[in-house]
Structures are given as C-alpha cells and as structure tokens.
C-alpha cells in the first residue's frame, strides 16, 4: 500500500467489518437460545389467541423455513448471512405477512432525521458552551456547569416524559405524540412538512438538551486541562492576545471531543429509542417497542441489526474525519514522523 492515508482507512474498515460480524453473529445466536424455539413460542401464543389450526400450520411452516430451524446450525448461520446481504430480513409475526424490511424502511427515515440533527447540534452547542465556560470561569462557569450537570444526568426519556406531560398534555402547546397529525398522508407538501416539524420539536428538544449538557461537561474539562498547560502560560507571557490563545485551546481540546461524537452515536441510541416510544414517534424505537411487546423476533432482530449498522457507519465516518483532522495521525500517516 503506497498511500499511507489509504492504509489508515483500510485498517479502520477491516476493524469495523470485524465488529459488524461479531454483532451479526450475536444477532443470529441469541434469539436462538430462547427455551423451546422462537417459532413454537410465537405459534403457541397465537394458538391461545384462538387462531384457526390451518392458519397456524401455514405460519409454522413459513417460519420454520425462514429460520431454517430444521437444518444444522452452521447452515442456518450461512443462510442468515446470505439473507442479510440480500436485504431479506424475514417476515414479521405481528403484522403477518408484512416484510420486516418494509416496516424498517418506513421507520428509518424518521429515526435518522430525528437523531442525527439532535446529536450533531447538541454536540456543537455543547462544545461551544463548555469551552466558553471553562475560559470565562466565575459565576457563568458555575451556573453553566451546574445546569449541564443537571441536564446531562436526566435520562433522555425522563426529560421526554416531563416535556410531553407539561408542554403537550398540560398546556397544549405541542401535539401529544406521533410524527404527524392523525389522518394526514405523508407527502412532500408544505402543509405536511410544517405539520411534521411541529411534531418534531418536543422529541428533538428533549434529546438535544441532554446532549448539550453531556458534551459541555466533557469540553469544559478538556479546556481546563489545556488552559493550565505550559504552552498557554508561555503564550500568555509572550503577550499573545487572549482570542488567539483561546483559538489554540479550543482546537486542542476539540480533538478528543470528536471521538466523543462517535461515542454519542452509540451511547445515545438506547435513550433515543425510548424517547421515540414516549412520543409514539413513527421511528425504529417505537417499532422495537411494539415488536418486543408482541414477541416479534424477526422484527426485533431486524431492528437490532439496523441499529448496529447505523451506529457502526456513523462511528466509521467520524473516525475517518478524525484521521483527516488530527495533525498527529496525519503526520504519522504521511511519514512526517
């Protein structure tokens, strides 16, 4: 490999492929550890619900074939992998004969358009706030830090519940849930978009405030370390203007925060999924919530798979960006050191 940066990317790619395979294997093996097997569990459940026996028979054969439970484990595994790469995620139990890929395909745009802006804007605002309060010190710092500490410790869904109750149910300022008004059909009309945005505000707000708090605390800490470092003292003694020094400090403290962004995508996921179900937002979180309640294993597996893929992709993109930005990595890659 001639190009060092390509080597860096290749190394990262192989790393993520490994993580992907571990995750997919867990996704394959864990639901198969359910006592009995998932198919008989669900069919029994339906039998008590009074479904006719010939329908049960058909359901049973469909799922036995899909899961391939009559074949040896390693063949099941290869079938599973092949199906994933063909984007064939099986059939939902609860919405039989709905396809899992269609259900997820409908939910995913909602989740992405809620979470990506919430995480990114929370990250940017939080970093600015953290750096500023570290530099400013005094009253501003202690108020901002305490507020950040409070907000970052409220779990997303707790803030979501409080917002939903106070602002939507109690004072009626916002809709009480859903992604758009009941009876509307998702189209690209202005009316629909405005309606969707109106439903968007509360879920967004409850996520972004917590994210800002968490990032601000991290950034403040990094900036405090930088502010007491030798180069800052040296620069001050040289008489360099404050704004200049802050820019150095900000850039240096920022680097670890980029890794923090990658972490956010993974750690925020759980809370974000629950936030969606609090607001009945039509995303993957609400889908997962219903799937778990109905023991819909294929749908649960589909959701966990798509969450894994989304988080790994986001992390990968951030790491590549980090490689570009961090002068140390760049220097090593270009052989300057």
């Amino acid at each position: 490999m001639k190009n060092p940066f390509a080597r860096y990317i290749l190394q990262k790619i192989s790393w993520y492929i490994l993580a992907f395979f571990v995750a997919v294997s867990l996704n394959f093996i864990l639901p198969r550890l359910i006592p009995g097997n998932p198919v008989s569990v669900i069919v029994n459940q339906m039998a008590t619900g009074g479904v006719q026996s010939d329908v049960l028979e058909r359901l049973y054969s469909t799922y036995m074939k899909e899961f391939g439970l009559d074949k040896p484990l390693y063949i099941q595994y290869f079938n599973y992998l092949r199906n994933i790469f063909r984007w064939n995620l099986g059939t939902s139990f609860m919405l039989y004969p709905g396809k899992v890929k269609d259900l997820i395909g409908r939910a995913l745009p909602w989740t992405i358009s809620l979470q990506v802006p919430a995480i990114l804007s929370g990250w940017i605002i939080g970093n600015l706030l953290g750096a500023f309060s570290a530099y400013k010190g005094g009253k501003f710092d202690s108020v901002a830090f305490t507020l950040s500490l409070v907000f970052s410790n409220i779990p997303y869904y707790c803030l979501a519940i409080v917002f939903l109750y106070l602002l939507a149910v109690r004072f009626g300022l916002f809709p009480v849930g859903g992604g758009y008004s009941f009876g509307m059909v998702p189209t690209l009309s202005l009316r629909f978009i405005m309606n969707a945005l109106y439903h968007y505000i509360l879920p967004y707000l409850s996520m972004v405030l917590v994210a800002i708090g968490g990032q601000a605390i991290g950034m403040r800490e990094m900036s405090l370390y930088e502010l007491t470092s030798d180069y800052v003292n040296y620069a001050k003694n040289l008489g360099i203007r404050d704004e200049r020094i802050i820019r150095y400090v900000f850039r240096n403290a920022m680097l670890p925060q980029i890794t923090g962004l990658a972490i956010s995508f993974g750690t925020m996921m759980g809370g974000a999924l629950v936030t969606e179900s609090v607001f009945s937002y039509p995303g993957v979180g609400s889908l997962l919530f219903t799937a778990i309640r109905q023991n819909d294993y294929p749908l649960i597996q589909g959701c966990t798979l798509i969450i894994t893929v989304a988080v790994l992709t986001a992390n990968f993109l951030v790491e590549i960006a980090y490689g570009f930005i961090d002068p140390r990595i760049r220097a090593v890659q270009l052989g300057e050191r």
């Binding site: 867990l26 759980g270 778990i292 966990t304 988080v311």
Partner: peptide, 18 residues
C-alpha cells in the same frame, strides 16, 4: 474495542430476549 464499537443497547436487547 470490538465491544466498544458495537452499541451496547443491541447486545442488551438480544441478551434480555434470550
């Protein structure tokens, strides 16, 4: 590092179901 990369909520959900 592999287990840091995989979102823990996914493993938690799968384990809890099993």
């Amino acid at each position: 590092n592999v287990f840091i990369t995989i979102p823990s909520i996914v493993i938690l959900i799968l384990l809890s179901i099993a």
